[in-house]
Nucleic acid binder design. Sequence first.
DNA 1: ACAAAAGTGTTGCTGGTACACCCATGT
DNA 2: ACATGGGTGTACCAGCAACACTTTTGT
Lengths: 240, 240
Amino acid sequence: MNTSVLPNINTDLVEMAPHFQFAHSVDCVIFGYDKGVLNVLLIESDHPDYRGQWSLLGDLLRPNEDLDAASYRVLRERTGLTDMFLEQVKTFGEVDRHPAGRVITTAYLSLVNVRDHQLKSIDNALQWRSVNDIDTMAFDHKMILDACLAVLKRKIQEEPIIFNLLEKKFSLRNLQLVFEQILGMSFDRRNFRKKLFTTGLLVDQGEMERNVKHRPGKLYSFNREAYDQIKKKSFVGLQF
Amino acid sequence: MNTSVLPNINTDLVEMAPHFQFAHSVDCVIFGYDKGVLNVLLIESDHPDYRGQWSLLGDLLRPNEDLDAASYRVLRERTGLTDMFLEQVKTFGEVDRHPAGRVITTAYLSLVNVRDHQLKSIDNALQWRSVNDIDTMAFDHKMILDACLAVLKRKIQEEPIIFNLLEKKFSLRNLQLVFEQILGMSFDRRNFRKKLFTTGLLVDQGEMERNVKHRPGKLYSFNREAYDQIKKKSFVGLQF
DNA sequence: ACAAAAGTGTTGCTGGTACACCCATGT
DNA sequence: ACATGGGTGTACCAGCAACACTTTTGT
């Protein structure tokens, strides 16, 4: 009995040939936050079975491309961004998930801030859609989106990735709004501030908001160096 | 410009053919707990490049098989178990990860208890190895094992999956030992008891340990129904 | 003046941690 | 009798939740 994970290289190659018939793709679930709303970047599908429905940004994996590299490429090609948060979430491999054949896809979660880096409008079929407004999507993409949303909710409480959604300098109010938006809860302002300050991850930028029609708030930035230090010694979570 | 995730079915099939050349596999990281040690079920590789090294239990995905179904099949075929905890963890898709060609693999985490269900010894190359004794493995399997261990550490604090490692009836001592073993910490016995009891997830079975050479402890079981109820309303975590 | 949000402290409660003694069983 | 772990309660401390008023800016 052959006990290896794969048949030996020495065994008849014909035996293995039928296995090398899968296609693999990556799909990027790109979240952005704008004016109080959590958005996801979508494109209208022009696949005949799903024409006009919303679809995630993805592409087929190339024969000599690492999986992670492919997701990075998709993000770069579609948005022009090159230095964003990007992390693998889950792989979807149902037999019938794609009409074109056996395509297995790996979903990636990405967080970008739309202000600092303006999107290249290479492709005007691209659109930011509020995650709350999305009911149906092409393929199994709604399921993929939901999986990524669940992971997002978990991860913002485990690691300080939420800052990727904001500009480098942000007000505490905005930070709180993003948390509230994603988690679907609301927090007491004073307690939220205390909690965030005691993490030691925020740096007062000595600047104020501009052009707001109320008392301007201080601007802060995320101190990544401090985070890297603290994390070595202890868990740094923001459990709500 | 073609904006769909995949080329249309109508476009030249020749265009897509080069993409359907990947193989896909699943690898199961099967953890078991026995006499104070966290083990993982491994097999000696007989792939020429890695002969004699330890390898995870895996197999190639079949053309008409769902991804999850494949992991389930591997577990069933190798261990004879059919009703175990099994969950997808991560997909590894480096170009050169497998000598036989472009094989992408999805890792699954599985927890089994060795006592309740005796392993079929179909295959005597199978062996339980202490996770602490494993340094190198075939392919990229050490990396996969490490990823699954990290996920295991996280998940036992988020969901009551740890009970899958124990027999149906277990002593609090054993439960605590499994936690300590996996997390690499030790806890105060009284505080551990209080914490577990206040979850409301343990049922006193009215039975005692047998054949222990000290005062026998009470046996408890995990109350899944209670968990399902509680979980609907609130988060049920066991943060340590 | 009004509207909108910024900024700020205290109190009570809850949950975690630290800690020591007697009990039941096998040898 | 001894060794091994089972079983139990309390006191302290830290972190969380609840809560209201004054300040700054734009209109």
